[in-house]
Design a protein around this nucleic acid. Sequence first.
DNA 1: CTAAAAATAGAACGACCGTGCTAACCTGTC
DNA 2: GACAGGTTAGCACGGTCGTTCTATTTTTAG
Lengths: 188, 188
Amino acid sequence: MRLASIEGLGSLTIGRLARELGVSKSGVFAHFRSKERLQQETIEAARGIFQREVLTPALSAPEGLQQVEGLCEAYLSYVERGVFPGGCFFAQLLAEFDAQAGPIHDQVAADQRGWLTLLADQIHTAQRQDELLAQMDPPQLAFELYGPLELSNYLFTLNQDPSVISRARNAVRGIIARAKPPRGGHSG
Amino acid sequence: MRLASIEGLGSLTIGRLARELGVSKSGVFAHFRSKERLQQETIEAARGIFQREVLTPALSAPEGLQQVEGLCEAYLSYVERGVFPGGCFFAQLLAEFDAQAGPIHDQVAADQRGWLTLLADQIHTAQRQDELLAQMDPPQLAFELYGPLELSNYLFTLNQDPSVISRARNAVRGIIARAKPPRGGHSG
DNA sequence: CTAAAAATAGAACGACCGTGCTAACCTGTC
DNA sequence: GACAGGTTAGCACGGTCGTTCTATTTTTAG
């Protein structure tokens, strides 16, 4: 996972992994029986990490607005902490396989749909709970929240500059603030 | 450039290019004299395309707000038209080399800095011309505009779904609208 | 028309790739 | 103590990689 997040899943080869681990190619090969399975199982493992580091913490918050904020903050924290040394594993996968037809492309597409749907669903719930304006379009709002998250992942990985995480937090806060219904006091 | 935008610059090899072109490896090699030069000159060529397709059209607009809008729209149009079949060449480069030290990483970092600086400078100019609120932080605003651009590039390449371009246009429009000073009439 | 230059091809080298064999080991259970 | 299952190693095969050589062809210049 570490290697794939840095150099791409295409660079995760049996020979390369064997060298990295200091074992023979056969030793690695016997565990996965093909390069495709090695890559597939690596994706599976990364999915587990993402679940543990992002989804589970965020989904423990109450549904609605708090979960929307929780998902954004959990993602930013996961990027900031450098859970994968090459940045978000699935952002890497998205950029690597967005234009390459095949099973991995389809999985990436499904993952992205799932992530955006999760955000949109929680936005919809927040609207029903009067935490967000009903006039906002949930998929549009989900897209707008996802933008700074994804961008900060690439830029943070590029420069190790923690200020881009702050910029993303500002952006997310602003988007949510403007989608909130006005509450009694002075407008802002 | 086409091959690199789809499969990554790492997949742009002398042998692969020779096979793709139906010529011998030596034939390709003689033109570039090394794999690194092939990749370097490919980046140079892509820079020319980006200049022609995005920067030049956008920079023909008057400085300030119109150029900010022009840069965003030019980028979205460039993604939408599929100038590179694998999506924006430099977004591909960013994701591929963000975690790999070396000369390409440094060029990518400089390019990103340049792009964000260009946006921030035009935002600053727009502020001086009272087209945008002076209280906004130009680098923060540039980051917020860049988010939907970058995200739409990856998602459009992934799904060929033109609706993500619309979402990005909506996002950009909203960000700019909220950064504008109120003008006489009814607010909205 | 000729001579220099550029482009292309072909073969070879060592390195790495995935994969299939065979053989050794290590760790259990009966 | 034997026997099975899982783990590792070593070797070989055909393929691709970048690169270096040597020809050969095509283009250009004078």
